[in-house]
């Protein structure tokens, strides 16, 4: 019967809370910036000039086919050599945004492609601008179609923020390592950390489901 004792961790509740807040900061910032990258990427992939399309495609392939850990190292260690210095958190946000942006580009592109050209045509025939057609006619159903994939990509990002610990951004996983080194209660620390990540994911999934239900009210076929 192993002798578990979570009580020594209690003194470190502030570190855990700060860790969670930093994890949320990384996740939310990277999601926002990544989505903006994704929207631009998707639009370029669909209708941009060829050089721009090639550039975006290259970006996506590089990001999706190399370790995220390596990407964060490059963002953290390379810019200082040309005199550009990022804090661990800044570097992590930049790296994770670039990372999420690559996946978001692909997902958003498939969302835009899921809308039949006849919808765009119908909008243009009414005398709307391309931007009005995109924002009012194409995007809402496209976002509904990709909502499940964006949700799971978001979860992967949330869990993936733990690699920011490797450049000493003091997010949750980094805090866990610190507390472990102070308490020598590895099992308890990592079990609790696991529980926190799990709870965060479940809460976000519930939130996404509620938002989705409120936003996507129109009936669909199938």
């Amino acid at each position: 019967m192993p002798n578990f004792n979570f009580r020594p961790l209690w003194r470190y509740s502030d570190q855990f809370i700060d860790g969670v807040l930093t994890t949320l900061l990384l996740t939310v910032s990277a999601t926002m910036i990544g989505l903006i990258i994704g929207i631009i990427g998707a639009i370029v992939l669909r209708g941009g000039p060829k050089p721009a399309r090639i550039a975006v495609r290259t970006y996506i392939e590089i990001i999706r086919n190399t370790p995220a850990l390596l990407q964060i190292f490059i963002i953290f260690f390379v810019p200082p050599t040309i005199g550009l210095k990022f804090s661990p958190i800044q570097a992590s946000i930049v790296a994770l945004s670039i990372y999420f942006g690559a996946y978001a580009s692909e997902i958003l592109r498939s969302g835009l492609n899921s809308i039949p050209a006849s919808q765009i045509e119908a909008g243009l025939c009414l005398g709307l601008t391309r931007w009005q057609v995109l924002s009012r006619i194409v995007l809402p159903p496209a976002i509904r179609n990709i909502y499940p994939s964006i949700t799971s990509q978001f979860v992967l990002l949330l869990l993936g923020t733990s690699i920011a610990s490797q450049v000493s951004a003091d997010e949750l996983f980094h805090a866990a390592g610190f507390i472990d080194s102070r308490t020598y209660r590895s099992f308890e620390v990592y079990a609790l950390t696991c529980g926190i990540y799990f709870t965060l994911v479940v809460l976000f999934k519930i939130a996404f489901a509620l938002v989705g239900r409120a936003a996507f009210r129109w009936p669909t076929r199938r």
Binding site: S118, A122, C125, P141, F216
Partner: peptide, 15 residues
């Protein structure tokens, strides 16, 4: 805006 066009497939906006 001055020319209305109706297609075989309706093309209403589902949302």
């Amino acid at each position: 805006q001055k020319v209305g066009i109706v297609f075989q497939a309706f093309n209403l906006f589902p949302h």
